[in-house]
Design a protein around this nucleic acid. Structure first.
Lengths: 177, 177
DNA sequence: TTAGGCATGTAAGGCGTTACATGATTAA
DNA sequence: TTAATCATGTAACGCCTTACATGCCTAA
């Protein structure tokens, strides 16, 4: 799902500034995708150029403590565009795992390095689990709840696996050399 | 993990042509990453230019039924490079899920479209599960076995979830409108 | 004879990251 | 006063995909 379309989806629920969208994506929606400022601001400007969103400058006095904030709102044209774009989406899921690649080639690592990788992954997973558990479960749609639960089940399975077989592999890899 | 380094890792075990590496990655190693020809061939040429791999042309008579095949072998320099590169790898894992993004925004989909997405994802997962189960479990390293088992546990968890909660959500989303 | 696998490669373009550039406000 | 947060943006570059270009061999 392109960042442009994803932003439209976010603006469908509420008006946001670019900075706020960045925060929403990288905190509340981190299980769906990530987005850097360098990708986000040009995306929003493209959307505005196409008439899918409109912006309103909010001066410093009104927005508490910030300056030159630009709040975006989705237009009718944007709403229509989003509805046609989301229908094109397939059920694809792309995993790019440096973790697994490293383990696949772990012959070239010391058992210490393997242990560190597993511990690191475990820590990341537990952090993600805490984040997901803290998310609100009310006032969100069934689909949003579903995405959170699905990710939680994936994260939980990964944690269980690493706590079980992950600990065992360190010894096996050690013995192999 | 960059494709260049990944290819070195593959050539560490055995000599391959570009075409063969493409097949290995997209079938046996599909749980780690993907690679298109457009990315692969330039990567191999870069590696050769840097002296990390060497190539030998195999004429049509020897290679059964193919023509102008170019078989690559890793050099000592390449082996050294791989060992330093793999140590730099972190336990990062990036999931980019169109499936979850679509479900997050499923307010804008009909219950039929949601059902189709879930069924599609389920079919993909089951296909991936069959692929993983068919992979050899002997004659591979502990690390390789680990990567397969880890992915299998993730795939199994996703299938269980979709078969359970996935079926339930279709009714809930229907009721919501 | 035609579809599919084997085989190598280029070109254009998409989509993103990191780093840079700037500057105000606020809390420790 | 210094670090953090708020706030917007550009430039360079990385890494990949899709589509194109070519051609041979094999089995249905």
């Amino acid at each position: 799902m392109k960042l442009d379309v994803f932003c439209l989806g976010i603006l469908l629920q509420q008006n946001y500034s670019g900075y706020e969208i960045h925060r929403v994506i990288n905190t509340a929606l981190a299980h769906l995708r990530q987005a850097s400022f360098g990708a986000l601001y040009p995306a929003l400007n493209r959307l505005q150029a196409k008439g899918f969103i409109s912006s309103e400058a909010v001066p410093a006095e009104i927005s508490n403590g910030s300056l030159g904030k630009k709040v975006f709102a989705i237009t009718d044209k944007g709403r229509a565009h989003f509805k046609t774009e989301i229908k094109k989406i397939t059920a694809a899921e792309m995993v790019n795992s440096d973790f697994l690649s490293a383990l696949h080639f772990s012959n070239n690592l010391t058992s210490n390095e393997v242990s560190t990788l597993i511990d690191e992954r475990l820590a990341d997973l537990q952090k993600e689990q805490r984040r997901l558990l803290k998310l609100p479960s009310t006032d969100i749609s069934e689909g949003q709840r579903f995405a959170i639960r699905y990710t939680l089940s994936q994260v939980s399975a990964a944690i269980s696996f690493l706590k079980g077989e992950g600990k065992a592999i360190q010894l096996l890899i050690q013995r192999q050399r």
